[in-house]
Amino acid sequence: MLFYIIQRIGLSVLILFLVLLTLFALIHIIPGDPVSIALGPRATPEIEARFIEKMHLDKPWYEQFVVFAVGALKGDLGEDIFTGQKVSDIIFSQLPYTIALALSGLGWAVCIGIPLGCFSASYPNSLLDRMLGVISVGTIAMPSFVVSIYSLLIFAIMLNWFPVIGAGEKGDLIDQLHHLVLPAFAVGLGWVGYLARMVRASMLEVLSENFIRASISFGIPRVKIIYLYALKVAILPTITLIGIGFGGLLSGAVFAEIIFARPGIGKLIYDMVEARNFPVVQGSVLITAFMFIFTMLVTDLIVAYLDPRLRKKL
């Protein structure tokens, strides 16, 4: 297990380095002059000069990379080119909102999706199973921005149950939860379908195993067999899926954040790309990439812990 952990951490570090390299290349790959791209048309020469100096654009590319990489390793992600605020401060002021959204969105999806998958697997090919199949595929196929817009129109505009924009009053937890309901619903709905289908498929495989047949023959209650014995084994691929889902939502909840005008990393990246504020874009992507890699690392370690066979493969 220890060797596997070391191998897995090494791989994560390598991926992170590649991300760092790609992010640095970002500003040089985009066609056009970086100063014009960042500052837009008709910026005054004074602003242009200050930008070039701040971004070290007057230095050779390898020096720029060293400055960027060393800074990132020290936790210094640079400064916002316009306001001079620390990029790390900006990111960490937004991150809790994204984590809350990802956790709540995925949380309710797990609570609904896994039991639905178990239920479907318990009654395979029944009318209910088929109906759940259609609904699951439907929710998977529905993009989160469509769900966001319709949930907003129905629950906020027509029924007036939930607010349209924002993340709620600072310090008012109830208000913040109230503002979280629709975005969490929007980002989680697709995952209900994913998880239900995934759990169903795994469960069907596990339910045909000998140890399950033996349990049934011992007269152990069906509910206990499904939720205690079978699910424990069938959940393994689902854990990986949840890990990917959480990591993806860190930057992938952008549509929900934009439509509901919620603060968050996805929206921050979107805004900063629009404003061509490259240090903040680089910093935000780096942090989300780091969190994604970390989440995958933890997920893989959990799965490897639960299933020792997997420790031999990287």
């Binding site: 907003l152 129109l153 906020a156 505009i157 007036n160 607010p163 349209v164 924009i165 924002g166 934009i258 439509i259 509901f260 005008a261 929206k267 979107y270 805004d271 629009e274």
Partner: peptide
């Protein structure tokens, strides 16, 4: 002054009485 980058979201928020 509430930050709403997306114009359509702002219009909906206005309709819902939040702006």
């Amino acid at each position: 002054c509430i930050i709403v980058p997306e114009a359509n979201a702002a219009e909906l928020a206005f309709e819902a009485g939040e702006l």
